[in-house]
């Protein structure tokens, strides 16, 4: 008897659909429903050991595996780009184990797994955005103990976070958190939006379903569409989403999040869109930045 037969699969199937066994998927699916019912609250789940290292997207992969259907079209990005090696690796994993369609186009995807970015193009009602989360606990670097942070969430005791942010202002003149900037959900739970740049925080209230998976830390949390998300700030120091000044050298966008690329050893640098699909889409539509190739070039 083969393993596949023991698990009740068709003989010859190397993997069950989307790799995870059905019992594991059920456990994750139950956690996802509770996560949606209590937005911003971190639901513990019995994260499985995946065939990729902890810290490399095991939480996001398990969440994606639990929500994918055979009809889905999957997009995977890391740092906003479809062609970074870990994004390529995860996309390949699902092509192999779920046999689903994949795309690099944000608009064509029904499920998007991401690490560190929210796509520039607004997501729509039919889409699900799955985040890979390294440390889901927004209070972890203020209080390392799980027993303590759990109590703080239960009692809605977020004073420590405000003290930390205020100390930033006292020392640096502004809140010195540039990514994984904490947010408050529907006036109740303080949540880590995963290490997205704070530039992306305003996009967190969106039409798509957002699911967050932290494999090593065994937590799942979620934001239903249109959930109220407030970046923590102070009246006299309001939240400001930041980005590099300048325009994309390829597509000329002045509103997208930019990566800085060092082009020589004499201080030369340029900026390009971090969202590769967004940038390619603009170039296809005829937009040009100052360093873009001429029409018909590479």
């Amino acid at each position: 008897m083969t393993q596949a037969e023991i698990r009740g699969e068709a003989p010859g199937a190397d993997y069950t659909f989307a790799y995870l066994d059905e019992q594991t998927k059920r456990m994750i699916r139950r956690a996802l429903l509770k996560a949606l019912a209590v937005p911003g609250y971190q639901v513990p789940f019995a994260s499985r050991e995946m065939p990729m290292p902890y810290g490399w997207g095991t939480g996001g992969v398990q969440v994606s595996a639990a929500v994918l259907t055979p009809e889905d079209t999957l997009k995977v990005i890391d740092q906003g780009a479809d062609d970074t090696t870990n994004a390529v690796s995860i996309r390949k994993f699902f092509q192999k184990t779920a046999g689903i369609a994949v795309t690099e186009h944000t608009g064509e995807a029904t499920v998007i797994q991401t690490r560190h970015r929210i796509p520039e193009a607004p997501l729509t009602e039919g889409q699900i955005l799955v985040y890979q989360v390294p440390i889901p606990e927004p209070l972890r670097f203020l209080e390392p103990r799980e027993t303590e942070t759990r109590r703080m969430h239960a009692l809605e005791e977020y004073g420590l976070m405000h003290v930390k942010l205020y100390e930033d202002i006292a020392r640096h003149g502004e809140i010195a958190t540039a990514y994984a900037y904490p947010v408050k959900i529907e006036g109740r739970y303080v949540m880590d939006p995963s290490p997205i740049p704070k530039f992306d925080n305003p996009k967190l209230r969106m039409a798509a379903i957002q699911l967050f998976g932290a494999g090593r830390e065994q937590r799942i949390y979620a934001l239903p569409p249109y959930t109220e998300v407030v970046s923590l700030d102070f009246e006299d120091h309001p939240f400001v989403p930041g980005k590099a000044e300048g325009a994309c050298a390829l597509c000329g966008s002045e509103t997208s999040y930019l990566d800085e690329v060092i082009v020589d050893d004499r201080g030369g640098r340029m900026f390009v869109c971090s969202d590769t699909d967004y940038c390619a889409g603009r170039r296809a539509a005829g937009y040009r930045g100052e360093m873009a190739a001429e029409e018909g070039g590479a």
Partner: peptide, 23 residues
């Protein structure tokens, strides 16, 4: 768990680094 998380810092983090650079 430990080696996975330790070694994940080899993965690109340039988006977050960029945001800190700006800051």
């Amino acid at each position: 768990q430990a080696s996975g998380f330790l070694e994940h810092i080899k993965l690109p983090h340039y988006v977050d680094f960029q945001s800190e650079l700006e800051l």
